[in-house]
Design a protein around this nucleic acid. Structure first.
Lengths: 129, 129
DNA sequence: TCGACCTTACCACGGAGGTGTCAAGGTTCT
DNA sequence: AGAACCTTGACACCTCCGTGGTAAGGTCGA
């Protein structure tokens, strides 16, 4: 059936069953359910669980922080509000006066997307083994 | 001298002096210092303190979460890692197969930047009163 | 049916976030 | 000099995060 139950998924990924439920609660990985309500972890979820672990201790990020990043992705209203607030930072880019910050932002996103693309292809290679 | 000390800044913004130090510790607002080390809050900082408060209870965000968003802005490595991880989400864009996610992202950023621009002009109007 | 799994819902408990308060000492103003 | 500020550092308290455990009950396979 190509899917593991929670304890099986736990032992092959190094998480505890408890933490898999917690990760789900944080909205990070929500496995599909069987008719009876059992969590079913497919290969995609297993891979994501492993890379999540790497992500966490490679960058010293917490599960709730990743959850917040997810929220930022979904809630563009909030994203925009934060961007706007950061943009009013007075001292930092003293020579970049508020009118140019959009360009600045756009430039940052170019770099970011490039970096993400690199990372994504790496992941693809790892996943498709 | 066009700058307030911490208790003055506190009473005009509604924060407590303790919380101003905490906000600084989180990296959100770092006022300049006098020769003797006193914090000096200029008009820009005062405005940002007020809008920060609005931001927090308008979107139910915490100070540390804003701090994390700031970290995301600065650490593009981390940003890219998170983007990449989110991009491997299996179920969600089942019809958007991994090659197109960059375009998808780019589109999202277009919308985000547009929204941020709207918000920024609002802020400018408010600030320049 | 019985054992081994799964579910949700709790309690526990150390660590961190958010906030107030206090102590010991330096600065500024009059 | 003395009052009224400021500084950093610490203790205290409550809530939430991260994580383990346990209890009461449903599901699956021999």
């Amino acid at each position: 059936m190509d899917a593991l139950t929670i304890h099986e998924a736990a032992s092959t990924t190094g998480w505890s069953a408890r933490m898999l439920r917690y990760v789900e609660e944080a909205g990070l990985i929500e496995p599909r359910r069987s008719a009876a309500g059992y969590r079913l972890y497919g290969p995609g979820e297993l891979q994501r669980l492993r890379t999540l672990r790497e992500l966490l201790d490679a960058h010293a990020v917490s599960i709730t922080e990743v959850g917040f990043a997810l929220r930022l992705r979904r809630d563009e209203e909030l994203s925009a509000a934060l961007q706007g607030w950061f943009a009013t930072e007075p001292a930092r880019p003293a020579d970049v006066p508020a009118a140019d910050w959009l360009l600045w932002e756009q430039d940052k996103h170019q770099k970011l997307l490039a970096a993400a693309a690199r990372h994504a292809t790496e992941l693809m290679e790892t996943t498709t083994r």
